[in-house]
Simulated scan of single mutants.
Amino acid sequence: MNLRQIEYAVAVADAEHFTRAAEACHTVQSALSHQIARLEDELGAPLFERTSRRVRLTPAGRAFLPAARQLLHDAQRVRDEVAAATGQIRGSLSVSVISALNSPDTVALLADFHRRHPRVDIRLNSGMSEVMLVDVREHRVDVAFVGLWSGEEITGLNTRLLCDEALVALLPPSHPLAMRPQLDLQMLAAERWVDYRSGSAARRQTDEAFARAGIERRVSFEIDHTALLERIVRQGLAVGMMPAGSATELNGLVAVPVRDAPTRRVYCVWARQPTPAAQAFVELVIAATEKTA
């Protein structure tokens, strides 16, 4: 068993396809398939179920994958730690952010990081908090900025609480409630709602608030990105909620405080044993948030 075989197997698990995995690993499919076959022989069990349309992990493959990711992460960290000992921060840095993130300015932080450490390959993407937490635990992402409802715990990761932020009602200017100085959940209960997908961390914020108040509501539109929520509200199809800092930046919409609104907690999260690049970026994040505190 060697690291290249493990890298190939993880790439197939991520792509669920041998050809795409070979392309990602910059090799030909025959070589990748041969190495995975040798790995399976050594392990004494098949890792993948192969069909004409896709590739799926077997039970043995599902047991193999977390340890394989950890092994690849540790191997890369060894290389990066040695480089850091000679004064070089290199390798890669993968950052994920929620779509409704007003502060800190992750793009500005990444630009500062790049100026300091130009040899690090930087990647940035956005997503849902619950997915990003798994990605950090499984070393697909180095650092993530997530938003959770106040009762939710984060386990197995380093965390830095960045802010507590109340959600506000987001309404089109023509809405009858848009002129009110303040609302409450009962006043909004009869409206059509746009919210994040059921079960997501972002959705639980509002679901928990309505449940605590003993109020039912109707969610007609389920989305996974703030931009779509904004468009639906702008067309008058539904009302929604957003963090106050993000809502105030939307021209042409009205953000109204809600007396019993849920509160979102924004965290920076990273692995218990970060790479030197991840640690250096987290230090920039902490320094930036301490300046604005």
Rank of each mutant, 00 (worst) to 15 (best):
Phe221Gln: 00
Val239Trp: 00
Leu57Trp: 05
Ala169Asp: 09
Gly245Cys: 03
Arg62Met: 11
Cys163Phe: 02
Glu7Arg: 14
His73Cys: 10
Pro172Lys: 13
Arg160Met: 07
Ala75Trp: 15
Glu81Asn: 09
Glu23Ile: 07
Glu283Ala: 15
Ala213Pro: 01
Glu138Tyr: 07
Leu93Met: 09
Gln182His: 06
Arg217Gln: 03
Ala277Ile: 04
Thr155Asp: 14
Gln5Asp: 07
Arg38Phe: 02
Gln273His: 14
Ala277Leu: 11
Ala169Gly: 14
Leu65Phe: 01
Leu253Glu: 12
Ala31Leu: 05
Gly199Arg: 06
Val143Ala: 10
Asn251Ser: 13
Thr19Arg: 12
Leu253Arg: 08
Ala108Phe: 07
Leu177Phe: 08
Leu47Glu: 09
Ser246Ala: 12
His73Thr: 08
Ala108Asn: 09
Val285His: 07
Asn102Asp: 14
Phe221Met: 00
Asp121Ile: 13
Met241Val: 01
Ala293Val: 08
Gln205Leu: 09
Gln235Met: 03
Thr155Lys: 13
Ala190Trp: 07
Ala277Thr: 04
Phe64Pro: 08
Thr275Cys: 09
Arg265Leu: 04
Cys25Met: 15
Leu171Trp: 00
Leu101Thr: 09
Cys25Ala: 14
Phe221Tyr: 14
Ile6Leu: 08
Leu229Thr: 15
Ala190Thr: 11
Glu191Ile: 03
Thr226Trp: 08
Leu177Val: 00
Ala75Asn: 12
Val256Gln: 04
Asp184Gly: 01
His175Gln: 06
Thr289Ser: 09
Arg79Met: 10
Ala238Trp: 00
Pro66Lys: 05
Val266Ser: 06
Arg140His: 14
Ala11Leu: 01
Ala84Ile: 12
Thr51Ile: 04
Met241Lys: 01
Gly236Pro: 00
Glu42Phe: 05
Arg217Cys: 02
Arg203Tyr: 10
Ala244Trp: 00
Ala22Gln: 02
Asp14Gln: 15
Trp270Asp: 11
Asn251Thr: 15
